[in-house]
Design a protein around this nucleic acid. Structure first.
Length: 253
DNA sequence: ACACTGACCTGCGAGC
DNA sequence: TGCTCGCAGGTCAGTG
């Protein structure tokens, strides 16, 4: 399940592999992945080069010569680089590159989406995304203001991409566990210290996860599929027993 | 304005 | 063994 750190890892890996390569051809096997029509998608991208590699929240953003290719992996989207054309039932889009390799998008659940954007798109407000976790505008007072007049659980708030972009289910659990905050606690009932801790732990955990994801890059040969090793370090998500007090972990909060 | 629900889609595990 | 059912996951549209 790609969240911010996995997306960042995919981005860095792809940057090393395909920067400045040209898209020679595109085959689309499952049209719904590409928003806005198959032919437009092909026309806008064929002949374009991968110039810059950016990320906003969980969106991969490839800046091409004349447009931006945005890609969201949702739950199971993956990119593979292949030396020859090959597809299976989960391959949905194949980009033929100028070095004769193929960049293949695979997604078992078909939830991922790609979209072509104009170069001048405002990435600050793209998809109503909030600040990146390391943005200096993310402060205790910002979270307090965001939670004003709201009554829902703090975990739900962390999952909202328009507060802080990039946190998903796994990291929300890890962050709140590290802070000692029950996920179901109302966002109204947090203390100033809680909000400060959430910011600190968000940054620490995401940074560590990116570094852990980065360590798997070495194992890629001609193909790349990024799963990330961070799940090995999860302290609470998918765990059955608490690593601190050894009591059972309740799934419902 | 906010909160909640369902749709999207497939694989997998549980229960019969 | 084979079947059905429900869940997981992120986002967004629709409804209350």
């Amino acid at each position: 399940m790609p969240e911010l750190p996995e997306v960042e890892t995919v981005l860095r890996t792809l940057e090393k592999q395909i920067k400045d390569l040209e898209i020679k051809d595109i085959e689309i096997y499952y049209p719904k992945i590409s928003e806005g029509g198959v032919e437009e998608f092909r026309q806008q991208l064929i002949g374009q080069h991968f110039r810059h590699f950016m990320r906003r929240g969980k969106y991969l953003l490839f800046q091409m010569d004349d447009c931006i290719l945005s890609s969201h992996l949702r739950m199971e989207g993956k990119y593979y680089l292949l030396d020859e054309k090959r597809k299976d039932k989960h391959s949905h889009i194949s980009f033929k590159l100028s070095d004769n390799r193929y960049l293949v998008y695979q997604d078992t659940r078909k939830f991922g989406r790609m979209e072509v954007l104009p170069l001048e798109v405002d990435l600050e407000t793209y998809h109503h995304l909030g600040y990146e976790p390391w943005d200096e505008r993310v402060k205790e007072s910002y979270i307090k203001e965001y939670c004003k007049n709201r009554k829902i659980a703090i975990k739900t708030i962390l999952l909202e991409q328009n507060m802080i972009a990039g946190i998903g289910n796994i990291y929300a659990d890890e962050i709140l566990f590290a802070c000692g905050i029950r996920p179901g606690r109302s966002c109204q009932r947090l203390t100033k210290k809680d909000r400060e801790n959430i910011i600190l732990e968000t940054r620490r955990i995401l940074k560590e996860a990116i570094e852990a994801g980065g360590t798997t890059i070495r194992s890629y040969t001609s193909s790349l599929g990024v799963t990330g090793r961070f799940q090995l370090q999860c302290k609470v998500h998918t765990m059955k027993v608490c690593s601190v007090c050894k009591s059972d972990i309740k799934v419902k909060w």
